[in-house]
């Protein structure tokens, strides 16, 4: 792959939690201007991967380059400058509960720019319009449904017009209509603003409909990657199991554990 077109370059990433390896040598390349979907069974560490890219946590080993900068060794100041160019949509929204919807979206603008209140208002209303919640601007986060909160968080993530956005499971908890809207929104934002998107998702259908490239994670490793067609036509068992949602296959449904029988004390 061409280095210039790679926005995020992960090499030999290793990370452990309580002595349990979450990642054991992961290599990833996220292309500029593309929507890259990361899929994997629950608990493989998809959220953890996004946190590593934003350096909320540090890896045991390996390198993570974002836009040519090595994230793992970046200074505090450099990190904060980089984060201004990254947006992140948390799994549950993570809105600031003491601010209303409007102020939540205005928050990064007020923190990082010297724009007039007039201009901030215009920008916030535009972002709210984009996620279809212009009417909800005076509500408090506690008064929003889970899906609405996620959309407000999306509006906040794009408030500073970042170079890339990381979406952590944006589709869960959305009704079919807003799901379709969201899928189109992610695509449109990506193409219109020239963003780079990393989408973590379980939803094969939605994910494959927007993905330019897919990574399949399991057991701390990348088990398959390629475009949607590549994976659908691949004869890799991993890809087959995941793309077709089969319960049996190389991906275990169970969290690692002692054999069932021994746990039930049956010998």
């Amino acid at each position: 792959m061409d280095d210039k077109n790679t926005l995020v370059k992960v090499r030999n990433l290793k990370f452990a939690r309580n002595d349990r390896m979450i990642f054991d040598g992961v290599d990833l390349d996220i292309q500029r201007g593309k929507v890259t979907v990361i899929m994997g069974p629950s608990g493989t560490g998809k959220t953890t991967l996004l946190r590593l890219i934003g350096r909320q946590i540090r890896p045991l080993e390996g390198t993570i380059e974002v836009d040519g900068e090595e994230v793992t060794t970046l200074s505090h100041r450099g990190l904060y400058e980089l984060r201004k160019r990254m947006g992140m949509l948390f799994q549950n929204g993570a809105l600031l509960t003491d601010l209303n919807v409007f102020d939540n979206i205005a928050y990064p603008l007020r923190e990082h720019t010297n724009l007039s209140e007039e201009l901030i208002r215009t920008l916030v209303i535009m972002k709210l319009q984009a996620v279809g919640l212009r009417g909800a601007r005076d509500l408090m986060p506690a008064e929003l449904s889970g899906g609405m909160a996620r959309r407000v968080a999306l509006a906040r993530a794009i408030a500073l017009d970042p170079m890339m956005i990381m979406y952590d499971e944006p589709f869960t908890g959305q009704d079919p209509i807003s799901m379709g809207v969201l899928v189109r929104l992610i695509r449109n934002l990506n193409d219109a603003l020239g963003l780079t998107s990393i989408v973590v998702s379980h939803d094969i259908e939605e994910a494959s409909s927007i993905a330019d490239y897919i990574y399949l994670l399991s057991g701390g490793k990348v088990v398959a990657h390629g475009t949607t067609e590549d994976l659908a036509n691949s004869d890799s068992e991993w890809a087959q199991q995941f793309m077709n949602g089969k319960p049996d296959g190389p991906v275990p449904f169970h969290f690692q554990a002692a054999p069932y029988a021994s746990d039930l004390n049956i010998d």
Binding site: R51, G54, Q56, Y80, E81, R83, K84, M86, G87, M88, F90, Q91, N92, A94, L95, L96, T97, Y107, P108, E111, H112, A153, R156, L160
Partner: peptide, 17 residues
């Protein structure tokens, strides 16, 4: 609770300490 609901993480990712 701000920590548990990831509000602190969200602030960090918005480059707000």
């Amino acid at each position: 609770l701000m920590k548990a609901t990831e509000q602190l993480s969200a602030m960090e990712m918005m480059a707000v300490d």
